[in-house]
Measured scan of single mutants.
Amino acid sequence: HNLTITQGKLFFHYNPKLCLSEIHKMEEVSGTKGRQERNDIALKTNGDQASCENELLKFSYIRTSFDKILLRWEPYWPPDFRDLLGFMLFYKEAPYQNVTEFDGQDACGSNSWTVVDIDPPLRSNDPKSQNHPGWLMRGLKPWTQYAIFVKTLVTFSDERRTYGAKSDIIYVQTDATNPSVPLDPISVSNSSSQIILKWKPPSDPNGNITHYLVFWERQAEDSELFELDYCLKGLKLPSRTWSPPFESEDSQKHNQSEYEDSAGECCSCPKTDSQILKELEESSFRKTFEDYLHNVVFVPRKTSSGTGAEDPRPSRKRRSLGDVGNVTVAVPTVAAFPNTSSTSVPTSPEEHRPFEKVVNKESLVISGLRHFTGYRIELQACNQDTPEERCSVAAYVSARTMPEAKADDIVGPVTHEIFENNVVHLMWQEPKEPNGLIVLYEVSYRRYGDEELHLCVSRKHFALERGCRLRGLSPGNYSVRIRATSLAGNGSWTEPTYFYVTDYLDVPSNIA
């Protein structure tokens, strides 16, 4: 807008934040220059609390790290170098490059900038070799853009010569660093050979998330399962459950009422301010606690030095998902009996873990797994792929695949051998790939016309006998059925096997 004052003059007093240069501009645009008398524009009460600059400061050096910015700028000295009290560095987070010096300023003089007072450097006698002032900004957020400017702080001049310097606002972004852990990993099994893994992005990506790394490792069953005799009275049979499938998407929606109208769909109840505040506090606490764990609990591995020492970490090797089922080394339970199943799973520490690289999504279907087997899954978020990966501390989750139908069934015939004193040795093959492992066998036998009897055969007993022995049988026709019990439950009964026990007292003698 054009402003013209045809008559009258300007009068400025007691404006401590208004620089004289701005008042002189007002004289020019209003056409009143030359009308004012000496005392109409006070030299001592206008701009006496402001830094009124008329020179431009330029930054000469900028260096960044993930949490620091090192700045240096060209030296500046007023005509009387004693008038320079120091520099004021202003900075704040700036997602967009549209910041002005006066953003967030209120009537009390406060604003949204963080201000650092910096002492002037030592003055050199040689004007050509003056030290460049600077400042190291610490405690910054990774991968965050900051708006920065600097200006001088000078003393009051009796001659009211307006001098000083100020830089333009520059924008500097800190470097990326390792992201925080992925949030809320959930693993479920939808079949006997697959596990579905879902997660949420890290709360602090500290860069642009480029991919996720998912490692999985087959877990050995508890050692007590191999040692305890679950045929003993009072000892509860062990059981394991597989990871249940995901709930429906509708039930997972946030901010939804727990109660549904019987007449149909209901609208979600909005969260109160107290609920939102509580969630923010919980989120802040979780982030602080995660940072504490990362800094205190997890110790970084030592990389190899120039002395030739090897990095103890196993090298990563990509495998196809079809090879995942046989990740671990199978060892027989008892070496003397080769027909026992290889369900003991000690994992070799030198073995390469299978892994998958996930790009542009937060889910993965891990296939080719062994049925009813526990897996430990390790999830890392990465925001750099080359020249070397920059990934987060791992988040861990466990899951067990679903049982395989008929995996616990005894394959092959049940054979028998009759000894003296009416002892019958029953023999059968253990299931080759049971659900988890076989903890015991149930032997059901009966003599024709009598009630059915049951015998429990422990895992250890089966390994020693290759089956079991029935003792003290009365003469007669017998039928026997056997079924295995694994961590997933009972298998199917075998087809009945028949044998006849004679009275050993009636056996004919070869003595003449």
Rank of each mutant, 00 (worst) to 15 (best):
P245A: 06
L437Y: 14
R459T: 05
N435C: 03
G476H: 00
N339C: 08
D273K: 06
D323M: 15
H416T: 10
S342V: 13
Y396H: 15
R319G: 15
T210R: 02
G489M: 08
H425P: 01
N435A: 02
D323R: 11
C267Q: 10
L505I: 10
C266M: 05
H425L: 07
H454V: 05
P332M: 12
G207I: 02
D408Y: 01
L379R: 00
K432P: 13
Y375H: 08
N255S: 09
S274P: 09
P434Y: 03
C231W: 03
A336V: 08
P245D: 11
E378M: 04
D506P: 15
Y292W: 09
R240H: 10
N255V: 05
F355G: 09
V334E: 06
N421F: 04
V358G: 10
V329Y: 11
V329Q: 07
Y441M: 01
K460N: 15
E362K: 07
T340N: 11
Y441H: 02
F499D: 00
T401S: 06
L225K: 04
V457T: 09
Y230F: 06
E452S: 03
E465I: 07
R240N: 14
D229P: 08
E310K: 01
D408I: 01
Y292I: 05
S344W: 12
E310S: 13
R353S: 13
F372S: 07
K271S: 06
T333L: 05
E495A: 09
Q380L: 12
G322Q: 06
Y292M: 07
P403E: 06
R353A: 04
P496Q: 03
C468I: 07
S479D: 02
E465P: 01
L364V: 11
T210L: 10
R316E: 10
L379F: 05
L277T: 03
C267W: 01
Q380S: 10
D204V: 14
E258A: 10
H425G: 08
V296A: 13
I438L: 08
S315C: 11
N435D: 01
K361F: 12
Y230E: 06
E452H: 02
Y259Q: 11
L505C: 07
L225C: 08
Q219A: 06
D273P: 15
K432N: 11
T303P: 14
V457L: 14
A263R: 08
S268T: 15
R353L: 13
S283W: 03
N510A: 15
S262I: 14
S274C: 15
L464M: 09
K278N: 11
C391L: 01
S268F: 02
P245T: 13
E404Y: 09
G234V: 09
P354A: 06
L321A: 12
C231K: 03
R301A: 07
S251D: 13
V480N: 02
G306A: 05
S315F: 11
L455N: 04
V457E: 02
V214I: 15
E351T: 14
E495H: 15
W493P: 01
